[in-house]
Simulated assay, not measured.
Amino acid sequence: MVTTTAFDRARLSRAPRVRSLDLGGLTVTYVPDGLVRLKPGGWLPAATDADWARHRDHLDGDGLLVAGIGALLVERGDRAMLVDAGFGPESRPDDPDNPLLGKLYGGGLLDSLRGLGRDPERIEAVAITHLHSDHLGWAWSNAPGRDAPPFAHAAHLVAAPEWARRDLAGDPRLAVLEPRVRPVEDGEEIFPGVRASFAPGHTVGHTAYTITGSDRRLIAFGDALHAPVQVTHPEWSCGIDHDPVESARHRRRLVEELSRPGTIGYGGHFADVVFGRAEPGPGGRFGWVPVA
């Protein structure tokens, strides 16, 4: 282990729950939608059996990585936006022939939002990190009992290079989004205190969002990292990364950034440790330490 700060390490393999942080003038909240269990051999193919033996606490009882699926609610006073939109009201069973994914399901996001006192109609924008279905579900799925998605009234913000190459996603449902998409540029402020930052690698236009309050900043890094163990091993690229070399290069820079004072990370797939920081440890490696 490289982390020196104690926490309940059972959280590394536990389904995430609602968690919030006050950044000073801004509140950020993880809003659950569903869950997927990732098969480590296919998802992080550079990791060996010996590696997983050393990091066994990152795996559940079936030897899988637990990855939450949800959205980040960003609130400033009465105003609110989301980063990503969950998987939506779908589920897929485990396919033994699929080397990447186990059981996958969503559908809880709208109820989670209402439980926080935030109706979907009061979301003014949805910022998308990248065009994969587990980040877009409620952007194209109709709300229950209605003939439109719950955020159809809101701008959907997508990095210009990601939207320009949306053909790479290969999903015809993206046509539903097109009337609502507003392409954004690198460094653009999309909401008070929230800026887009292009971070290609996982996809061609993958985007992080830096959220700055009066005393801290949070980097919502999307799928630049899928699991806390990659903070320790940023060289482990995901099996579906568009450019594994570029994604590893970006992860190394990101981990260094997440170790700086006043900087917090948000990993939407990070089991029950979605908010945290990178803490230096032995051998020049880092470990993920939750802060909420």
Rank of each mutant, 00 (worst) to 15 (best):
D84C: 06
L72I: 12
R76V: 00
P150N: 04
P99W: 10
P120E: 06
R146L: 13
K103A: 15
D147G: 07
L113Q: 02
G41Y: 04
D78E: 14
A143H: 07
A71C: 08
L113F: 05
K39T: 13
V66Y: 00
A143M: 08
A127R: 04
A85M: 10
G107S: 09
S112W: 01
D78S: 15
E121P: 03
A50Q: 11
P93E: 15
L131P: 10
R56W: 12
H130K: 03
D60G: 03
G42N: 07
P99Q: 12
D119I: 03
N142H: 15
E124C: 07
A125P: 10
V126N: 05
G88C: 00
P96W: 07
A50R: 13
L104M: 14
G68V: 09
P93A: 15
A127S: 14
L109P: 02
G86V: 03
P40C: 10
L59K: 02
A125H: 10
D60K: 00
P149M: 07
G42E: 08
L109C: 03
S112A: 14
A47K: 01
I123R: 00
D134Y: 12
E90L: 13
L116D: 02
L113V: 03
D94P: 00
D51L: 11
A139K: 05
H153F: 04
G117N: 05
H130Q: 13
G145S: 02
D119W: 00
S112F: 02
G137H: 12
H58G: 09
H135R: 12
D57S: 14
I69H: 07
P93L: 15
M81C: 09
T48G: 06
T129F: 02
L44P: 01
G117Y: 05
V126Y: 08
D62F: 01
N98G: 03
G77F: 07
G145H: 04
I69K: 11
H130G: 12
N98Q: 09
R146V: 08
G88L: 00
S91T: 13
G102V: 13
L64H: 08
D49C: 10
R56Y: 09
G70C: 04
A67M: 05
L116V: 14
W138G: 00
G137V: 00
W43F: 14
F151G: 02
P149K: 12
G41P: 05
A80V: 09
